Deep mutational scan, measured.
Amino acid sequence: GMDVRRLKVNELREELQRRGLDTRGLKAELAERLQAALSGPSSG
């Protein structure tokens, strides 16, 4: 899988935006949010 901790802030935001998620917050928050999205149930 993707290691969200290795991504830069702008990369985290890009991935979040692609999934329609909130791109605001600290890098740690963005990484946590993206990780949750990646490990969560895949819809679609």
Rank of each mutant, 00 (worst) to 15 (best):
R5K: 13
L38S: 04
R33W: 03
A28T: 10
E32A: 15
R18F: 05
A28N: 12
E15V: 03
R19H: 08
E14L: 11
E15K: 03
S42L: 10
G44C: 14
E32Q: 12
R33Y: 02
Q35P: 01
L21E: 05
R19V: 03
L34S: 00
R18N: 09
E32G: 07
L26P: 15
V4K: 04
S39F: 09
G40Q: 13
R18L: 11
L38A: 04
G20T: 00
G20L: 01
M2A: 07
L7Q: 03
L26K: 15
Q17M: 11
L16M: 02
L26M: 12
L12A: 01
R13A: 03
R5V: 08
R19M: 13
A36V: 09
L26I: 14
P41V: 14
M2V: 12
Q17T: 07
L7P: 02
L21M: 08
A31V: 15
T23F: 04
A37Q: 05
R5H: 14
E11Y: 04
R13L: 08
L30S: 00
E15Y: 04
L7V: 03
G44W: 09
R18V: 07
M2G: 07
R33E: 02
K8C: 08
G40E: 12
M2T: 08
L16A: 03
R5D: 10
G20M: 02
A36Y: 05
G1Y: 06
K27P: 14
E14V: 09
R6Y: 09
R24D: 15
T23E: 07
M2W: 08
E15A: 08
E15T: 01
K8V: 06
L30N: 00
E29I: 07
L30D: 01
L38N: 04
G40K: 11
R33H: 01
E11A: 06
A37M: 05
R5P: 07
A28G: 10
L7G: 02
G44H: 12
E15I: 06
R24M: 13
E32P: 02
L12N: 00
R5G: 13
G1E: 11
S43T: 12
D3K: 08
M2P: 10
A36I: 10
A36T: 09
R13S: 03
S43E: 12
N10G: 10
S39P: 07
R18W: 03
L38Q: 05
R5L: 08
A37V: 08
P41W: 08
T23G: 02
L30Q: 01
L16D: 02
L21S: 04
M2K: 08
A36R: 14
T23I: 06
L7C: 10
R18I: 09
R19W: 04
E15D: 02
R13P: 01
A28S: 13
K27A: 10
V9S: 06
Q17A: 15
E14F: 10
S42E: 13
S39A: 13
G1M: 11
A28K: 13
D22F: 00
E32F: 06
V9P: 05
G1H: 14
S39G: 14
G44E: 13
G25M: 02
L30F: 00
G20E: 04
A36M: 10
K8F: 02
D22I: 06
D22G: 05
G25W: 01
L7K: 04
E15P: 00
R19K: 06
L38M: 10
L38W: 03
V9H: 05
M2Q: 08
L12H: 00
L38Y: 03
L38V: 08
K8M: 08
Q35K: 10
S39W: 08
R6I: 09
K8Y: 02
G44T: 13
E29M: 06
E11D: 07
G25I: 01
E14K: 11
T23A: 04
M2S: 07
P41H: 12
G20I: 00
E15W: 06
L30K: 00
Q35R: 13
G40I: 10
R6D: 09
R33D: 02
L34N: 01
L30Y: 01
D3G: 06
G44I: 13
L34D: 00
G44Y: 09
V9N: 04
A31W: 07
G25T: 00
L12V: 02
R6H: 12
G20D: 06
E14A: 14
L30G: 01
K27W: 15
K27N: 05
L38F: 04
G40W: 08
L7A: 04
P41Y: 09
K8S: 15
A37L: 05
D22R: 05
A37H: 11
S43D: 13
L30M: 06
P41K: 12
P41R: 07
N10L: 07
M2Y: 09
T23S: 06
E29T: 07
A37W: 09
L34G: 01
G1R: 13
L12R: 00
N10Q: 14
A31H: 05
R5I: 08
G20W: 01
G44P: 13
L26N: 15
L16W: 00
L16R: 00
L7T: 03
M2L: 14
L21W: 00
G25H: 01
D22M: 03
A37N: 06
R6L: 11
G20H: 06
S43F: 12
K27D: 07
L30W: 01
D22N: 11
K27V: 11
E29Q: 09
D22K: 06
A37G: 03
E29L: 05
R6N: 12
A37R: 03
N10A: 14
K27S: 07
M2D: 07
S42K: 11
T23D: 14
R13G: 02
G40S: 12
L26S: 15
G40T: 11
S42D: 13
A37F: 11
D3A: 07
R24H: 15
R6T: 10
D22V: 06
Q17D: 09
E15G: 01
E15L: 08
R6P: 04
V4A: 06
M2F: 13
D22Y: 00
A28R: 11
L12K: 00
E11N: 03
N10H: 14
E32Y: 05
A37P: 01
L12W: 01
G20S: 03
D22E: 10
R33N: 02
